[in-house]
């Protein structure tokens, strides 16, 4: 206050300020007002500009590649939208459809995660005397088909026997997911083809489905030769060479779409088609 009175003493210097403020009392309160107002303004500017500390993210391209695969699922899922009902507004219907697609993708992703968790658990619990599900001699022969392969260690065919079992289960599970999207109960070749097309890690199989389509023209002799063993076997693979096969069981979540399953008449029609055509009609 004393300093202020000292400033007040120099009336000549503060004359224009007095005139601008309009009153002597304003001059006294104007100074503390200004000094108090400046600091909060500065702090208010600094506070929101402070950036929040970002969580450390792992820049792994492999993870990004893996995570990108669910995105590729959405085009095929959206390719089969539910026919719009005239009652509900299109906007609400679209949102409902999007939610259904997202739920379906989440379920499929969880199924695959559960599958791989089961596989790792099985590897940990395996016994050394377990017989392989696939013949090692045949695997070795397939490996030898590559001319560059000279010698094969004993562990390599055993490794492939397990890897192929996982591969077959992986492909079958993904194909079955596509079967369920179509509300069917029979896994068809087209389901396998759809999985190969939409899964990046299975790009090396694209030639197989292309070549097979070309082979379809000249399958007369092969079909004739293939019919007899199936007829004699009665379509039942009773040949049980590996009795110690491990049986895998999965917890299948209840599918909402199963409630909309077609009536029994259509099922009977499908069964008739399967028995007649043997699954040849796609």
């Amino acid at each position: 206050m004393e300093s202020k009175s000292a400033y007040g003493g120099a009336i000549g210097v503060w004359t224009p300020m007095r005139e601008s403020w309009g009153s002597a009392s304003a001059v006294t309160s104007a100074r503390p007002f200004v000094t108090n107002n400046v600091i909060p303004a500065i702090w208010s500017r600094i506070a929101p500009s402070l950036p929040p500390s970002p969580l450390p993210r792992r820049p792994r391209s492999a993870l990004a590649h893996c995570r990108a695969s669910p995105a590729s699922v959405s085009p095929s899922a959206r390719a089969s939208p539910t026919p719009p009902s005239p009652r509900s507004p299109p906007h609400q219907h679209q949102q409902h459809a999007i939610q259904q697609v997202q739920q379906l993708q989440q379920q499929q992703k969880e199924q695959l995660q559960a599958f791989w968790a089961d596989q790792m658990a099985e590897v940990e619990q395996m016994t050394e005397f377990k017989l392989p599900n696939l013949p090692l001699a045949r695997i070795k022969k397939i490996m030898k088909a590559d001319e560059d392969v000279k010698m094969i260690a004993g562990e390599a065919p055993a490794l492939f026997a397990k890897a192929c079992e996982m591969f077959i289960l992986d492909m079958t599970l993904r194909s079955w997911q596509h079967t369920e999207e179509g509300r069917r109960r029979t896994l068809q070749r087209s389901d396998v083809e759809a999985v190969i097309k939409k899964t990046d890690i299975f790009d090396f199989l694209v030639d197989i489905i292309t070549d097979d389509k070309m082979k379809d023209d000249g399958m007369g002799s092969q079909a004739a030769s293939m019919v007899s063993p199936y007829t004699s076997g009665g379509m039942g693979f009773s040949f049980d060479l590996y009795p110690n096969q491990h049986h895998l069981a999965y917890m299948w979540p209840p599918q909402e779409q199963q409630e909309q399953w077609p009536p029994q008449e259509q099922q009977e029609q499908k069964q008739k088609q399967d028995s007649d055509g043997g699954g040849q009609d796609e």
Partner: peptide
């Protein structure tokens, strides 16, 4: 679940190709 014969044949070829691909 049911599996068509052609689906089994396709998976059979895919698994065989899997061995050749990784072996290469």
């Amino acid at each position: 679940a049911k599996i068509s014969k052609r689906a089994k044949e396709t998976i059979q070829e895919c698994a065989t190709e899997f061995i050749s691909f990784v072996t290469g």
